[in-house]
Design a protein around this nucleic acid. Structure first.
Length: 324
DNA sequence: AAGCCAGGCAACCGCAGAGTA
DNA sequence: ATACTCTGCGGTTGCCTGGCT
């Protein structure tokens, strides 16, 4: 409210104008770019063409007026996958990520990502009643990596130079798999590593039941439940290539996977998201060197399912001695 | 019909780096 | 070497809209 009043005051005083752009202003801006190209943004104001700052003009051009933009088109499943993959590699380098998505701006990517994060957060919060739902998030770090600090980190493939990295990325606009591999994709058995304890596994068991529907199985009996059972829609299919299995795990195979996940996982969705990350599952040649490829990298996992404080609700399992 | 809420989006702000006088 | 300007980036905010109650 205060901002809007300030904005109007400035406007009336003939100072810098802010807020939504009018069609006439767009027209002036487009004409300027036609004449001089997309630069000298500040001169637009100094010449008295518009009462907008150079920054504002540039932003308007880059995000809305540029001719090659995909305005009003939702992110496709492919684009979504690319963003997820690149975000895992580059972090929040939206401008850089946007260069791999024709017609998308850094703002688009940023907005897409934050919407996605919000949505995931909401999903997890709805599914984790009591303490966590009322506990405000303090910072982004808390949002991202609560229980992974002790997990060995998986790094994206190393490149010897930024040029190499860039050329790789350019030749692979959709980076899954990230690197050209002439070999057919290997079938990877979906195995639980022997060093991975049941308790650790259980930490990844996301309970998507509501508080009402929450399991009432006594702890003792829980320990008798056979080792992780997946609901049919999340069962890995060993006949599928790795990527498809990854899709099952992350849900990326379905463009509306979040919707479907939200709808269908009314029961206890157990996501076998851990095992495949512990070992490189394919390798490829880069300039004569062998590079390991991971099915899922830890960062993207974390980002895909920001656990927030879901671990607050993991009840301690009975000790092995209590197992019958 | 009105109110609430979440999602989508546009735009602003602060900061940093590059270029230039 | 320094100050200034321009440009670009990432984070954040606030408005609008549609769906739901």
């Amino acid at each position: 409210m205060e901002g809007r009043r300030r904005m109007l005051q400035r406007d009336e005083m003939g100072e810098i104008k802010k807020g939504p752009w009018k069609a006439e202003e767009d027209e002036v801006l487009i004409n300027h770019v036609k004449k001089y190209g997309p630069r000298d943004w500040s001169s637009i104001r100094s010449k008295g063409l518009l009462r907008r700052t150079g920054k504002s003009c540039r932003l308007r051009w880059v995000n809305k007026l540029r001719p090659d933009l995909k305005t009003g088109v939702k992110f496709s499943a492919e684009e979504e996958r690319t963003v997820i993959d690149l975000q895992a590699q580059f972090g929040n380098k939206w401008a850089r990520i946007a260069t791999y998505l024709p017609g998308r701006t850094d703002n688009d990517v940023k907005n897409f990502w934050s919407s996605r994060q919000k949505r995931l957060t909401r999903m997890l919060q709805t599914s984790t009643p009591s303490s966590s739902s009322t506990k405000p998030l303090k910072n982004t770090e808390e949002l991202q990596t609560p229980a992974f600090h002790d997990v060995p980190s998986m790094e994206a493939p190393k490149f010897s130079s930024s040029t190499e990295e860039e050329s790789m990325a350019k030749s692979q606009p959709c980076l899954s798999p990230r690197i050209d591999n002439p070999e057919p994709i290997k079938m990877v058995p979906f195995m639980y590593p022997t060093t991975f304890s049941y308790q650790q596994y259980n930490a990844f068991q996301l309970d998507y039941t509501t508080s009402e529907k929450k399991s009432t199985i006594p702890e003792q009996q829980q320990s008798q439940i056979p080792f992780p059972q997946l609901p049919p829609q999340l069962q890995p299919d060993f006949s599928l290539p790795l990527e498809s299995q990854e899709d099952i795990i992350t849900g990326l195979g379905d463009p509306n996977y979040l919707d479907e996940f939200e709808k269908n996982s009314g029961g206890c969705a157990q996501l076998p998201i851990v095992p495949s990350i512990f070992e490189p599952d394919r390798s490829c040649q880069i300039d004569g060197r062998t590079e390991s490829q991971y099915a899922v990298d830890i960062d993207s996992l974390i980002d895909d399912f920001p656990p927030i404080d879901i671990f607050d609700h993991i009840e301690p399992l009975p000790s092995p001695s209590e197992w019958s």
